[in-house]
Simulated scan of single mutants.
Amino acid sequence: MADKKLIVITGATGSGKTSIRDYLVEKYHAGKIITHTTRKPRGKEQNNVDYYFETDESFAKLHLLEHVKYVTAQYGSSMEGINKAFENHDVAVIVLDTKGAITYARKLKDQAEIWFIKVDDPDTLRQRMQKRGDESQRIEKRLASDEFMRDMHLPDELKNVATVIDNNDWQVAQKQVDNLMTK
């Protein structure tokens, strides 16, 4: 992994983490690190493509680098998933909450490049969640959660580690991503 680039994208729900990951996969041919979850698929999400959809029992058997529980679903990432993304790519990208990003920064040190995606207005995040098809009740639970409040701000543990990307406007964020990828 020494000659590879691992990008960890973090920030609040609806901040555009997945959109930025997809942009990196499409434009820069980054390998997408697939993570595990016990939640049900949304819309057209597919197993082994968007997530590894797990049961509580199968999730408990995984060898995870980090994991977290949000409301009723568990999420986690494994070293196997990272290594699989690096099989055919020099750059791999993963989307994590800030707690997971802190774990990656602590365990992988400078092997992980942390990007914190910032959006100033919680109403913008609500609108983005609605647009992607989240149920209203789920959105309100998520916005009221401690995890959401934590992920709205760059944690102290990442202040000297993370690059902050302003995603209030996609064109501004896209230029910043392009600059980071070509430096």
Rank of each mutant, 00 (worst) to 15 (best):
L158S: 02
S145R: 05
G100M: 05
D146E: 14
D123P: 06
D110R: 14
E157Q: 07
A105N: 04
K84C: 08
F148V: 01
R106N: 15
A101Q: 01
W115L: 08
R126F: 09
N88S: 13
R132S: 15
K99Q: 14
I139P: 01
T98P: 08
E135R: 15
A144F: 02
P155M: 01
N88W: 07
I165M: 08
K118T: 05
L96M: 11
D151K: 00
L158Q: 06
T124W: 01
I117G: 01
F86N: 07
Q137Y: 13
K141G: 04
K159S: 11
L125W: 00
Y104T: 04
P122W: 00
D120K: 03
L125D: 00
V161E: 14
Q137R: 13
G100H: 02
K131S: 12
R126E: 08
R106H: 15
E87Y: 13
D123R: 14
A162P: 09
I114T: 09
D110P: 08
M149I: 10
A112F: 07
I139C: 05
R128K: 02
D134Q: 13
I117E: 01
V91F: 08
P122Y: 00
A144V: 00
Q130W: 05
A144C: 02
G100Q: 02
S136V: 12
P155Q: 02
G100C: 05
G100W: 01
A101K: 01
P155T: 02
I94A: 05
H153Y: 12
K107T: 12
D156Q: 15
R142N: 10
T124E: 06
Q127G: 09
Q130S: 12
M129T: 06
V164W: 05
A101H: 01
L108G: 01
Q111K: 13
E87L: 15
D110G: 09
K159T: 09
K118D: 12
R126K: 15
T98V: 10
D121P: 04
Q130F: 09
A101E: 02
K99G: 12
R106K: 15
Q137C: 10
K99S: 13
D134V: 07
K131D: 12
Q111C: 07
T103D: 12
Q111R: 12
K131Q: 14
D120E: 14
I102H: 03
K109A: 14
F148G: 01
Y104H: 11
K107G: 06
A144N: 07
N160R: 11
T103E: 12
A112K: 02
L125E: 00
H153R: 11
L108Q: 03
S145D: 04
E147N: 05
A101C: 04
Q111A: 10
N88G: 11
I94C: 06
D121N: 14
M149G: 11
E140W: 08
Q111F: 10
F86W: 08
V164K: 05
R142I: 14
I102E: 03
Q130Y: 09
M152S: 00
K159P: 05
G133N: 06
A85D: 05
E113H: 13
V95Q: 09
M129K: 10
A105T: 06
D120P: 07
G100S: 04
D110H: 15
F116D: 00
K109N: 14
